[in-house]
């Protein structure tokens, strides 16, 4: 197969590195060649961060370039917008419907765009969830990224058991249960949506 190109975009500190470790583990479990590229250091301090994940028979370049992403997983709306031109024409965007103001907005030097996800949905296949609120309901807002991953899972090439297995091996021992629960929230939600799409067709 041609390499599958995934991007995880968000704000430094939102857990993109943990998410990329999970995707890396999955690619290995699936028997693929895989490369991931991450951001460490200064940008991790609240800046815009992007992680590239590519898996397939043989992967050379460790980054995904403009117009080449099959799936973009966005942990924040503005970051979904920033990287949207990386999506393939038939690419899928999975976005956490959540707003974190960047400093230019906080100090009034720029405005946070309205209607980002609605506008992107006119051009692309977009699935959104307010994962941060859903995660708060589970008792830990930090596991929001697992909810988003649960949705993304249905656009990738791994079984639910493989996801569970890798989550168990990757997250801290004490948080395995809540992370799996969060993954289920997204997974079930997307499955129901997809059933509905089928009936609507």
């Amino acid at each position: 197969m041609a390499a599958k190109n995934i991007m995880i975009v968000g704000v430094g500190g939102q857990g993109t590195l943990l998410t990329s470790r999970i995707l890396g583990g999955l690619a290995i479990a699936g028997g693929y060649d895989v490369k991931l590229s991450e951001v460490h250091g200064m940008a991790q301090r609240g800046g815009s961060v992007v992680t590239y994940v590519r898996y397939g028979e043989k992967v050379a370049e460790p980054i995904v370039e403009e117009g080449q992403a099959d799936v973009i997983i966005a942990f924040e709306r503005l970051e979904a917008l920033r990287y949207s031109h990386f999506l393939k024409k038939d690419g899928v965007l999975i976005a956490n419907d959540w707003r974190i103001d960047p400093m230019p907005v906080v100090i009034g030097a720029a405005e946070y765009p309205e209607g980002i996800l609605e506008d992107l949905a006119k051009e692309h296949k977009v699935y959104t969830v307010n994962a941060t609120e859903e995660a708060k309901k589970l008792g830990n807002p930090r596991v929001f990224n697992m909810i988003v991953l649960g949705i993304a899972a249905q656009h990738m090439d791994f079984t639910k058991e493989q996801w569970y297995d890798v989550i168990e091996k990757t997250v801290p021992l004490k948080t395995i249960e809540i992370n799996k629960k969060a993954f289920d929230v997204g997974y079930v939600r997307r499955m129901m949506e997809s059933e509905k799409e089928k009936t609507d067709d």
Partner: peptide
């Protein structure tokens, strides 16, 4: 690329 306000790194 879409017009999006920048998000430079900041103090946490």
């Amino acid at each position: 690329p879409a017009k999006a306000p920048g998000r430079p790194p900041i103090l946490c």
